[in-house]
């Protein structure tokens, strides 16, 4: 791929990246929590304490800086009481994640990558990111499958 092509593509992304309205729900939390169902906007999530995480991923090159909320914080704030969280993505990808993962590791719901907000046109608006580089045990396909892109809901059970 030639450089001008790449530049054009990047520009195209910048120009066309859909802007989320402040009122849009980006994440739904349900199941064994304080309320029946809680909807979050991107601003709600940005309002939480933000954590930075630098790590490589299996689908990108080099180490990237991710920023977002600790999944642990979100679950604690809404009194999640269960063993697992069923994470679902925009395309209906679904996986069970043990809650112990969030206790053992600083797993974040990343809202931006390298300073650029994640978008539904890449892996956003939320990408579950594990501190892969800090824990060799996380460098395993069984954990890779828990890195849910385009996360839309978490169901505690």
């Amino acid at each position: 791929m030639n450089m001008p092509g790449k530049l054009t593509l990047c520009l195209a992304f910048l120009l066309t990246a859909p802007s989320l309205a402040a009122s849009d729900t980006v994440l739904t939390l349900s199941g064994a929590i304080s309320d029946e169902e809680i909807k979050f906007t991107r601003d709600d999530l940005l309002g939480m304490s933000q954590q930075q995480l630098v790590t490589a991923t299996t689908v990108t090159d080099g180490r990237s800086t991710f920023e977002g909320f600790l999944v642990r914080d979100l679950l604690e704030a809404h009194e999640a009481d269960g063993e697992v969280v069923i994470a679902r993505a925009l395309n209906d990808y679904q996986i069970e994640i043990p809650i112990s993962d969030f206790e053992r590791f600083d797993v974040i719901g990343a809202l931006s990558m390298d300073g650029v907000p994640l978008s539904p046109r890449d892996k956003g608006p939320i990408w579950i990111v594990y501190p892969r580089d800090d824990h060799p045990e996380l460098q395993d396909i069984r954990y890779d499958t828990r890195w849910v892109w385009q996360l839309v809901s978490l169901h505690v059970q």
Binding site: L9, F13, P18, T58, V59, T60, D61, L90, N91, S119, P120, R121, D122, K123, W149, Q150
Partner: peptide, 14 residues
């Protein structure tokens, strides 16, 4: 968006 995101994934990194 989803289609673009998949194409975006294919067009990046590894």
């Amino acid at each position: 968006d989803l289609t673009i995101s998949r194409l975006d994934l294919l067009g990046r990194g590894p």
